[in-house]
Design a protein around this nucleic acid. Structure first.
Length: 827
RNA sequence: GCCCCGGUAGCCCAACGGCAGAGGCGAUGGUCUCAAACACCAUUCAGUGUGGGUUCGAAUCCCACCCGGGGCACCA
């Protein structure tokens, strides 16, 4: 005990955490009131998947997110800050197979663990709105939405070559194939021809793209760019090439109709139905052999751009619509079956791929754009006048020679349209969203297949269509959904004719679940629809969405699509779900991503036990700009804790009474407080939280100095400063802030104390230091009034002895005055 | 190959085109201590990746290059 007295005061981190959690539970300071008269703000953060306990990544994103949410509360807004779980998905299913149990066991146990951890971590979530996408009360409405989308023609089934993950034994959406590998497990993806459910996201391609312009100022540039690339709009033309012995022409899509005179062959995707149909009997054997060869290749081999071009002559010829020339038609794997029309006009002079193909196959090469002087490349696709269009001496119905690329394009399209052999067209890289999955732990697709009536929707009143009870070995991947084997569940009567029918046995991609959860939060217990339309209109769009950039084209694109459809259904009055967005970096260690194999993982639990919640949160927020990665090895949570103790100590030193008016207190400290509060607000609003923390540190230092060697602890300015510190700190370190607030004589909770008022007069300095430069070098400093005129400041500068000496009698050529801070004299 | 973002002190990071330093970490010295830890006080260190340009003035704007990170990449 005697030791204790000689030591500086400090608080017991553990005890303070235990002390305040039940108080906050009692006060419920972050319950969002739908009917509040305050202005509303919606703070959204990406909900987690329940795999194990929370880790450093969760700690970072929620700490950053909470700064904004708590700031809004302090500023007097009614804040909706909900949290839930994206609780369908493969890890639970794989765990269930391993442990011979039900996926729900793993899922809900982990949710409970994470819930408890979030609570201890002190994030200002409104837990009354908690949801789980695997609850029947939730997925009932996912099924409802699917059926509504289907009624609008936006959900449909088709047979098509699809991405197949041989490891997870399920199909994947395009967005889930990364570099030819399964986004989830890394296995090489193969192709399969399957009949699957799709959402018609392409119907919204144009709007999904154009609205990005409006989002650009408030969304991270990399997300906007990624979505633009993914949607991939291009302008060009469809051109028809007549084929001998076939009624229908081959239609190609090209972005360079102006190069049509250089079309010396045609290429069709080898895996397209068109190629199989066009091939002549004489070439059929060669074609089928080639096709077999290509089918054996993996996506990774196929996507490699530097391998030689291959193909096979289909034996037919087509007619170039502008030259009338007969050109050969080939099949190849470098043309994609599912982009454009699956057929391309081969222009080796203008397209490097066609150049390579023509070179390998010995096909004619004609340049149709004048190459720049000294050009020694192969195909040329830059600017320049059209040539050989037509070639000298050739008589053609169209002549575009000499036209620049843009004009030549337009002239060609005009001609083709007049002639009825083509038209201008827009194409998108975006494909429809494949949503079926051949796995168990997801939302059952509410469709019944009847031999007589075909696809029949499960009647709305029968929703939710719940999953049958399957566990352990029943869930093993077999290439078809585990649901297909649950005959009691699958075999049903057709709702239309009453005859024998089968349920669709696939489940939905879990990205469907997460495409609308932010709407459910607005009325999580609503039973008459997926969400209460009026409440969604009141809260939406989310004012901020904080989360990882890995969802740049997955979740964020799907959620935008759902929002637009729901708007068109009259259920929302916004077409974009997220007004602004913040992507946090990741937490790494020793320059590398944390991983088991590297053994450099940092346990959140251990860090919290060692330094406490506030110090860990502060460290994450203070580390740097939120978008930057944090190398935990470079961080000092111990230093954060020291700072928090220092701040807390201020609250014990204040001797004035609570409620003491700050007016009349030490002016220097009052100015420091005003500046800190003013700057902190601006910094939070521009997501520069690390700088905001630095401002608070500055104020703590200034207050310490004032107490020890300045105006002393009784000065009202000291109380004002300490209270401002507590309130600002409440955004980052809620436990410490609460403890300070109590020691300052206030009742909980500091989280709702309100942002400190700033007297604008205190932000105006009495005098400022003006710098006088000669030739850009500082030669003198002057104390001047902040509103000094330019002329006065120039006069003051030019008579200053140091300036006079520096000028040394040389003629002054020019004087630049930036009142009140700077004068630069040029001699 | 193309497109973004970044490069400031030993380290993490600040700096409306205007004195290169707000804050933190570390290090060193001091106060306190028998000594140490803690705490407090003080000090230390770069001319902003490289080379040009614009400007009275450039870390900041422009060009080229180097390094690091990310995205896209047979989409016709």
């Amino acid at each position: 005990m005697s030791e204790q007295e000689t030591q500086p005061e400090s608080y017991d981190v553990e005890a303070v955490q235990e002390k305040w959690l039940p108080v906050w539970d009692e006060l419920q300071p972050f319950r969002a009131d739908d009917d509040s008269a305050r202005e509303k703000k919606y703070a959204l953060t990406m909900f987690p998947y329940p795999s194990g306990d929370l880790h450093m990544g969760h700690a970072e994103v929620t700490a950053l997110h909470d700064v904004i949410a708590r700031y809004w509360w302090q500023r007097g807004y009614e804040v909706l800050n909900p949290m839930g779980w994206d609780s369908f998905g493969l890890p639970a299913e794989n765990a269930a197979i391993r442990n011979d149990e039900h996926p729900a066991t793993y899922t809900y146990a982990n949710i409970e663990t994470q819930y408890e951890s979030f609570k201890r971590y002190g994030i200002s979530f409104d837990w009354s709105r908690r949801l789980h996408t695997s609850d029947p009360e939730y997925y009932r409405w996912t099924q409802w939405l699917f059926l509504k989308f289907r009624e609008r023609g936006l959900a449909y089934r088709k047979s098509s070559p699809v991405n197949w993950c041989p490891n997870d034994q399920t199909v994947l959406a395009n967005e889930q194939v990364v570099d030819g590998r399964c986004e989830r497990c890394g296995a090489e993806v193969t192709k399969r021809e399957l009949t699957q459910w799709y959402f018609k996201i392409t119907e919204y391609a144009e709007e999904l793209l154009s609205e990005l312009d409006r989002l650009e100022p408030t969304w991270p540039a990399r997300v906007v760019t990624a979505q633009r690339n993914w949607i991939g709009r291009s302008e060009g033309a469809h051109v028809d090439f007549a084929v001998s012995g076939r009624d229908e022409p081959i239609t190609v899509y090209t972005t360079r109709p102006d190069t049509i005179f250089g079309t010396t062959f045609m290429v069709v995707a080898v895996d397209s139905a068109l190629a199989a149909e066009l091939v002549t009997d004489g070439q059929r054997a060669a074609f089928e052999a080639y096709r077999e060869e290509i089918r054996k290749e993996t996506e990774i081999e196929r996507l490699s751009t530097d391998r030689p071009k291959t193909g096979v002559d289909l034996g037919v010829t087509a007619t170039n619509p502008v030259t009338g020339a007969q050109i050969p038609v080939w099949a190849t794997d470098y043309v994609l079956a599912d982009y454009g029309t699956g057929a391309v006009m081969g222009v080796p002079g203008g397209d490097q791929r066609d150049w390579e193909f023509a070179t390998v196959m010995g096909l004619e090469i004609v340049r149709t754009t004048q190459t720049p002087e000294g050009y020694d490349g192969e195909a040329y696709n830059g600017e320049g006048p059209a040539i050989n269009s037509p070639a000298p001496g050739v008589d053609a119905p169209l002549d575009i020679n000499g036209l620049a690329v843009a004009d030549a394009k337009r002239a060609t399209i005009d001609f083709l349209e007049q002639q009825g052999s083509g038209q201008g067209a827009v194409n998108f890289r975006l494909r429809d969203w494949l949503l079926s999955r051949q796995r168990y732990w997801g939302v059952p697709i509410p469709i019944i297949h009847c031999e007589k009536d075909g696809e029949v929707a499960v009647p709305y009143e029968q929703l939710p269509l719940e999953l049958p009870e399957l566990r352990g070995a029943d869930l093993k991947p077999k290439g078809v959904s585990p649901l297909a084997a649950a005959s009691e569940w699958v075999d049903v009567e057709c709702p239309t004719c009453g005859g024998p029918a089968k349920r669709d046995s696939d489940t939905m991609d879990t990205f469907v679940d997460s495409s609308w959860y932010f709407l459910r939060y607005c009325s999580p217990n609503y039973t008459d629809g997926p969400f209460d339309v009026e409440k969604a209109k009141a809260w939406m769009p989310a004012d901020i969405y904080v989360g990882g950039v890995e969802h740049a084209v997955l979740h964020l694109l799907y959620a935008r699509f759902f929002t637009k459809v729901l708007r068109d259904m009259g259920m929302l009055d916004v077409g974009e779900p997220f007004a602004s967005q913040l992507n946090q970096g990741i937490v790494i260690n020793q320059g590398r991503k944390m991983s088991k194999s590297l053994g450099n993982g940092v346990s959140l639990g251990e860090q919290l036990a060692a330094y406490g919640v506030d110090a860990v949160r502060l460290t994450l927020v203070f580390a740097g700009p939120p978008e930057d990665d944090i190398d935990w090895a470079d961080m000092s949570p111990a230093g954060s804790l020291r700072f928090l103790q220092r701040a807390w100590r201020l609250s014990g030193d204040v001797t004035s009474e609570p409620g003491t008016a700050p007016e009349g207190g030490d002016v220097a400290l009052r100015r420091a407080t005003a500046h800190a509060v003013h700057d902190a607000a601006e910094l939070v609003e521009s997501y520069r939280f690390n700088v905001m923390v630095a401002r608070v540190m500055e104020l703590v230092n200034a207050t310490r100095k004032a107490i020890d060697s300045g105006c002393g602890p009784a000065d009202p300015a000291v109380r004002e400063a300490a209270e401002a510190v507590a309130i600002m700190l409440s955004l980052v370190a809620p436990f410490t802030a609460e403890e300070m607030w109590e020691r300052l004589g206030h009742r909980p909770t500091v989280a709702r104390a309100g942002w400190p008022a700033v007297d604008p007069a205190l932000l105006v300095e009495e005098s400022v230091t003006a710098v006088v430069q000669i030739q850009g070098k500082v030669r003198a400093r002057l104390e001047v009034a902040p509103d000094v005129s330019e002329a006065d400041l120039e006069q003051l500068a030019l008579v200053d002895p140091a300036v006079v000496k520096a000028i040394d009698g040389r003629p002054v050529r020019k004087v630049i005055v930036r009142a009140p801070k700077l004068v630069n004299v040029v001699v």
